[in-house]
Simulated assay, not measured.
Amino acid sequence: MSPDFPSAHPEDPHFISRSGWLRAAVLGANDGIVSISSLIVGVAAANADRTSILIAGLAGLVAGAMSMASGEYVSVSSQADIEKADIQREAEALKENHKEEFDELVAIYELRGLKSETAELVAHELTEDDALRAHIRDELGLSEHHSANPLQAAFASAFTFSMAGALPLLAAFLAPTSAIITAVLITTFIALITLGALGAKFGGAPIIPAAVRVLIWGSIAMAITAGAGWLFGVTIA
């Protein structure tokens, strides 16, 4: 919705354009690691046999990936619908009440610290260029970096869920039956730390705080979920 502007520091780029797919990718990967690990550990803790553990893990991987894809698509589509509706309303308002909309834009710039004369000049020049784009950006707070992309979010989430969730499943497959829980837990902790670090790296954020945050919350979620296996002692025939 806005033109591509040259960067003042191309050697140190901004990462805000990655926020949409990166959020979905990290969410999918984290959910894949935690849910599949929790499922495997919970089933294994209920003294299920090796085949049942692996089947449960594989079923959870497939179902989880599809659930993440559909969930992301539906939720982000809803966001996109809201954005389109707001843009349409803004376009109609500009046609019917151009003066009121112009004054609203001036007021926005004044609230951001511009003097009245400067705010009016800026609003005039921007609305001359593309009034709707100016209102979309400054009144609605939307830009091409933040606009919803349902397919991108769905694919990123499902793909990273599958790739990340496959790690604890692979650990369970390779480990001897007596060591499945230990192998899965170790793999999960390493995967969570790696996920936090990679997410921070791609987002240009500090790596250590992100890795610790993902590890702590992922471990808490996994412990609560896996605890159901011990608590109820469910077995799978």
Rank of each mutant, 00 (worst) to 15 (best):
L185T: 12
P209G: 06
T235S: 13
G203T: 01
W217P: 00
V212R: 04
A191H: 12
G199W: 02
G204Y: 12
P209M: 10
G233M: 06
L185K: 04
T194M: 09
I186Q: 01
T187I: 05
M222R: 00
F202A: 08
I190W: 12
T235F: 12
P209L: 13
A221C: 09
R213W: 05
I224N: 04
A210W: 00
I207S: 07
G196Y: 00
T194C: 09
A200K: 05
K201P: 02
T187S: 12
W230M: 07
T188H: 11
A228T: 07
L215S: 06
L192F: 03
M222W: 01
P209F: 10
P206I: 13
I180W: 00
T182Q: 07
A205C: 12
L195M: 13
G218R: 00
I236P: 01
A226F: 00
A210L: 02
A223V: 11
A221M: 04
F232V: 06
I180S: 00
G204H: 12
V214I: 15
I216R: 12
G196C: 13
S219M: 06
L195I: 02
I216Y: 09
I180F: 08
G196M: 05
I216D: 15
G229Y: 00
A183S: 15
L185Q: 15
L195K: 02
S219L: 14
L195D: 03
G227V: 05
M222F: 06
P209K: 09
L198T: 12
A223D: 04
R213S: 13
L192M: 14
G199H: 10
A228P: 00
A197K: 02
A228I: 03
A221F: 01
T182P: 00
T194Y: 05
A210D: 08
A200F: 15
I193N: 08
T188Y: 10
I216P: 06
I216E: 11
A183H: 07
T187E: 03
F202W: 11
G227L: 10
I236H: 07
T182S: 12
I220M: 15
F232T: 02
T194P: 01
A200R: 06
A226W: 01
I220V: 14
A191D: 05
L198V: 15
S178R: 13
A221G: 03
A226T: 05
W230I: 13
R213K: 15
T188E: 14
L198Y: 06
S219H: 13
T188G: 14
T182C: 07
I208S: 10
G229L: 08
L215W: 12
A205I: 14
I216Q: 08
T235I: 15
